[in-house]
Design a protein around this nucleic acid. Structure first.
Lengths: 341, 341
DNA sequence: AAGTACATCCGTAACGTTCCGGATACGAGA
DNA sequence: TCTCGTATCCGGAACGTTACGGATGTACTT
């Protein structure tokens, strides 16, 4: 509640001098600085953000916009993203607002409405798509943003990108080396860059032995346990060609696959080899799998901090070259893959 | 980006007139109001929140503060609360910020830091406790807030309260009427008002037939499936007295209990009667239970809208008497309770 | 004709901060 | 003595908005 004016009255010096003393970067004597700091503490002063934002043009508020959809709140990635970003921005004394946009509202409109308010400094975007309308719009508007996820290397914006091509490639390569050729891919939602990249990786590994990825063994959907469960069950209940191995987009899917395999009576890895990508989210831990799951791994929860820093850097106008992070993925062989008999 | 000044230049009228026209409550002719609104739309005007906050004292930003803890992101109630409030405030053109506070930071300090900035209009509090330090602090500071949950009827603040005493009473009463006396209570986290209330309700129902709730049959913990699973398993694996019926705090716990019962070899309801409170969150649906679960029910997802309205009313200084909502609970008998043999 | 009432508008101040040009004082160098 | 540099400070102005006292014009009353 105390203002700069209160301090200036108390000490008999000007408001601008108090302001300068508090930021410490300007010309003010060592003694007045001490007096000002003491007074500020005694009056329990804290700067009025609105006033500061009014003159600086910044609000200290950033937002994540997600599209409303069925099952949103059961989407582990969504939940972790919200919590992770909130934690990181809170820690940096910024406000993180979550905006859940109506499903039928076009993204440009949502973002337009939000940036119109003039109270948002920037955005975090997730799940980028090819030719992403949001990215085009925000770039055109000159609004700072950072993208979490794959978007092609020649991008002229800030991003934190996981090497999803390698995810697909490393997982499929390992299966191929074990003799597998009929590989199923339970991938992410169709239209996602990350899903394209992973599929490309899988295809590349198969191509090296002259084999194509069969369209009927590809599935695309939002990550969930039931998606894995249903997909595998279907693949083994039809008269179609059956896979000898399956690549799962994340641990939820893998969990569904394990359950389906048990129900159908398939033994992993003897009857079916399974690999997955582990993004280290707490909802499904890799320790819960028997037999132990062979995975590619990249810790998504390590991304929220860098993501926050990237966006702040962007807002402060840092050079783009410092604001692009590319994360390699690890590969850990365990016990869920067997050589094809 | 457009300001009131831009509009005033464009139309040749004063800034104050434009401001008045846009809020509509002051003296401005019908024609100028139309012209101003048209101009505002064409310039894509939207008010600068920092400036508005500076003079009016309001920012249009509200916050939910939650304490960091293990398993936070797997807490269905937390997730639904965040998503639900975010949706409702977005819809009302307000910003909803989620703040995840460090576990070791005392609440007063967190709230003090946030309100010190002067850019927050109010707070939503969840999971109130007796003698809640947050409530005391915010009341002392005169900051608007609304409490979601039980807090005693004579409160002089705004709340949305579910009749948790009735939850305990109705569930236990039904069990008692079926002859049960050794009733287990898998309740919420110790220290929560809601948990106290529910326990009081259960005790009241038992007292009517002259029986006490046995301390060894009471558990307190955060709601989760594993909590239900483990608790029931423990109760039936020790040499202690075993319950003939169990009251579950929510559907997650009930689910764990069902799984544990199956594993132990108990048939519901023949060997064990089960009742639960259903708060209608999408993570666990009551349809997923076999045999069908007898429940008390109150739709938590119906609370986010009223909660938003209550907080807004509080910020706008409405009378407290209009800002206190008390929600009764329903009781639905299904097939998970059998008369004690 | 003068006064009153009302509708409609304007100008200015204020909110709390930062930025910037310009004061003031003092000592050093010419 | 005059100029110059430096260290330290002050006084506005500005950011975009709202609140408020007052101005203007019109119509109606007496």
């Amino acid at each position: 509640m105390a203002t700069l004016k209160d301090i200036s009255h108390m000490l008999g010096i000007s408001v601008s001098q108090v302001s300068a003393a508090l930021k410490g970067n300007s010309d003010v004597s060592e003694e007045t600085r001490r007096r000002v700091q003491a007074a500020a503490k005694s009056l329990n002063y804290s700067p009025n953000l609105s006033a500061r934002k009014l003159v600086s043009g910044r609000s200290g508020i950033v937002a994540l916009v997600v599209r409303e959809h069925e099952g949103l709140t059961r989407d582990a990635t969504f939940v972790e993203t919200v919590a992770g970003l909130s934690r990181q921005f809170s820690r940096r004394n910024m406000q993180f607002v979550l905006h859940i946009a109506a499903a039928n509202e076009p993204p440009e409109q949502t973002y337009g409405r939000l940036i119109g308010g003039g109270s948002l400094d920037g955005f975090v975007l997730t799940e980028p798509e090819p030719e992403d309308a949001r990215i085009a719009y925000l770039q055109a508007q000159g609004v700072p943003f950072v993208v979490s996820g794959n978007c092609g290397s020649d991008s002229n914006f800030s991003f934190y990108e996981i090497d999803n091509f390698s995810v697909g490639y490393k997982l499929a390569k390992h299966l191929v080396e074990n003799g597998h050729r009929r590989i199923a891919l339970l991938n992410g939602r169709a239209g996602l860059n990350s899903a394209y990249q992973r599929q490309a990786g899988v295809e590349a590994a198969l191509k090296e032995v002259g084999v194509d990825l069969l369209p009927e063994l590809i599935r695309n959907a939002r990550f969930s346990e039931s998606y894995g469960l249903v997909s595998l069950t279907q693949m083994f209940s039809t008269e179609q060609i059956k896979p000898t191995a399956v690549v799962c987009g994340n641990l939820s899917i893998a969990h569904g696959v394990y359950r389906a395999a048990e129900a159908i009576g398939l033994v992993i890895p003897d009857d079916l080899s399974v690999v997955a990508h582990d993004d280290c989210l707490p909802h499904h831990k890799v320790q819960g799998f028997a037999p132990n799951l062979t995975v590619s791994v990249s810790d998504l929860s390590a991304s929220w901090g860098p993501l926050a820093d990237l966006l702040i850097g962007r807002i402060e106008g840092k050079a783009l070259s410092e604001l692009q992070i590319f994360v390699p993925v690890d590969f850990i062989e365990r016990a869920s893959v067997a050589p094809l008999r």
